[in-house]
Simulated assay, not measured.
Amino acid sequence: MSKPALYTGALTTVPQKAAAMSTDTARIERTVASVERIFVLPRSQQDAARTWVAEGGEHGPCTLKAAGAVIFVRDGASGIETFMTYRVKSPMGRLAFPGGLATASDIAHHQWIGPSETQWAEKTGGDNPQLARAAVTTAIREVFEETGLLLAGTNEVSTVESLNAHEMMSVRQAISQQEKDFIGYLESRNLKMRTDLLKPVGHWHSPDFFHKRYDLHYFAAAVPVGQSINLLEGKGIWGRWISVGEVLSNTTSTALGDEVGQDDTVGKTLPELVSPGVMCALEAMNNSSSAIAFLSKKRSVQVVKPETKMAADGTCYLSVKDAPAKPAR
Results as ranks from 00 to 15, higher is better:
295 L>C: 15
57 G>V: 03
62 C>E: 08
173 Q>N: 12
265 T>R: 01
43 R>Y: 04
254 T>D: 02
80 I>A: 13
84 M>Q: 10
101 L>C: 03
60 G>T: 06
306 P>Y: 02
219 F>N: 01
172 R>N: 03
298 K>H: 13
38 I>K: 00
57 G>K: 03
111 Q>G: 11
141 R>S: 02
78 S>Y: 13
239 G>I: 14
156 E>S: 05
261 G>R: 08
219 F>H: 13
270 L>R: 10
321 K>T: 15
176 S>Q: 14
106 D>L: 13
252 T>F: 10
191 L>S: 07
17 K>V: 03
198 L>K: 12
222 A>Y: 11
184 G>C: 10
285 M>S: 06
5 A>K: 14
50 R>S: 00
159 T>D: 11
250 N>A: 09
203 H>E: 12
212 K>P: 00
138 T>M: 05
135 A>I: 04
96 A>N: 12
203 H>T: 12
1 M>Y: 14
41 L>N: 00
256 L>H: 03
246 E>V: 14
154 T>R: 15
125 G>D: 04
19 A>R: 14
143 V>Q: 02
323 A>L: 08
275 S>Q: 15
128 N>I: 11
18 A>N: 15
230 N>C: 11
76 G>N: 12
259 E>R: 10
202 G>A: 13
84 M>G: 02
227 Q>E: 13
70 V>R: 01
326 K>Y: 03
32 V>H: 02
125 G>W: 10
171 V>M: 13
301 V>Y: 02
158 S>M: 04
252 T>M: 05
130 Q>V: 13
87 R>I: 00
280 C>E: 14
184 G>R: 09
318 L>F: 01
308 T>E: 00
183 I>E: 08
277 G>K: 09
207 P>S: 07
57 G>T: 02
195 T>I: 01
87 R>S: 08
151 L>P: 01
237 I>C: 06
289 S>H: 09
122 E>N: 09
276 P>E: 05
326 K>M: 08
326 K>D: 04
13 T>M: 04
31 T>S: 10
146 E>R: 04
20 A>W: 06
155 N>W: 02
172 R>F: 14
135 A>K: 14
205 H>A: 07
320 V>P: 00
237 I>T: 08
73 V>R: 04
129 P>F: 07
218 Y>D: 07
77 A>H: 09
249 S>V: 09
178 Q>A: 02
274 V>P: 12
118 T>R: 09
55 E>P: 06
78 S>Q: 15
256 L>M: 12
130 Q>D: 03
202 G>V: 13
189 R>W: 11
159 T>L: 08
317 Y>C: 01
66 A>N: 07
127 D>I: 05
305 K>M: 13
268 K>P: 00
207 P>M: 01
132 A>C: 12
194 R>S: 06
199 K>S: 10
31 T>M: 12
185 Y>D: 12
80 I>H: 07
325 A>W: 05
110 H>C: 08
255 A>L: 09
154 T>K: 14
74 R>M: 12
219 F>Q: 05
208 D>S: 11
234 G>C: 03
229 I>P: 14
290 S>A: 05
236 G>A: 06
212 K>W: 00
52 W>S: 01
111 Q>I: 09
245 G>N: 11
9 G>N: 13
40 V>Q: 00
149 L>I: 11
156 E>V: 04
86 Y>N: 10
247 V>D: 01
88 V>P: 02
104 A>V: 07
88 V>L: 03
10 A>Y: 15
47 D>H: 03
324 P>I: 06
44 S>E: 08
132 A>W: 05
